[in-house]
Design a protein around this nucleic acid. Structure first.
Length: 189
DNA sequence: TGCACGATGAAC
DNA sequence: TTCATCGTGCAC
């Protein structure tokens, strides 16, 4: 089940590729946060790709700020932000340093030690105990990382427009949200 | 220093 | 469809 978690941790080069490819391949991977020596594990079933400063829906489109600094850094790091005064959202930074792109994890299927709903980006962070103190954290660390599943599994992928980015004009209509077809944990099928 | 606004979630 | 709730970014 969760044996050999650290051994299955994704390498830096996984994240240093086209963001849409990384987003799709993250489906089925296991997001892990070790809290008080207990690994909280969720299988990623829904993500969104944010392609960089030219993508008007991406936070990096407003330029480098203290909040978005991790997005402009090297791949394989966490970008966690606080929204609506009460929710946190977890992203992985992708592509080369300065590209400022990333993948938002919108929903996970419970695998181990998760309590409460995990359908939706805010709820994923709540269940996994992730907040903005982890923004900029290295995803090749021992306490926060993403691992290959124990067994290779094939998933059918659905592409849809991203959620909550209507302000981004034509970019809001791009099919940059991906989820596992038929999975009951997807936030908005 | 002030203020409008969210890459949301839950209630109605 | 409405509202809770507050950090962030930019206007002043």
């Amino acid at each position: 089940m969760i044996a050999g978690l650290h051994r299955r941790r994704l390498p830096r080069r996984f994240y240093d590729r086209d963001t849409r490819v990384v987003a799709r391949e993250l489906l089925g991977m296991q997001l892990v946060h070790v809290v008080d020596a207990v690994p909280r594990v969720g299988r990623i079933v829904e993500v969104e790709a944010y392609l960089g400063p030219h993508d008007l829906a991406a936070h990096s489109a407003r330029g480098l700020t203290p909040r978005t600094r991790p997005m402009f850094g090297p791949p394989g790091h966490a970008y966690v932000y606080f929204v609506y005064g009460m929710h946190h959202c977890f992203n992985t930074v992708t592509e080369r340093e300065g590209h400022a792109s990333g993948v938002l994890v919108r929903a996970v299927e419970p695998v181990a030690n998760l309590a409460g709903s995990t359908r939706g980006p805010g709820l994923v962070c709540r269940a996994l105990g992730i907040d903005r103190r982890l923004s900029g954290h290295d995803l090749l660390s021992d306490d926060l990382f993403i691992a290959r599943p124990p067994r290779r599994e094939r998933v059918a992928i659905v592409s849809r427009p991203r959620v909550g980015v209507d302000y981004a004009g034509a970019w809001a209509r791009r099919l940059l949200r991906f989820y596992v077809r038929g999975n009951r944990w997807v936030s908005r099928p």
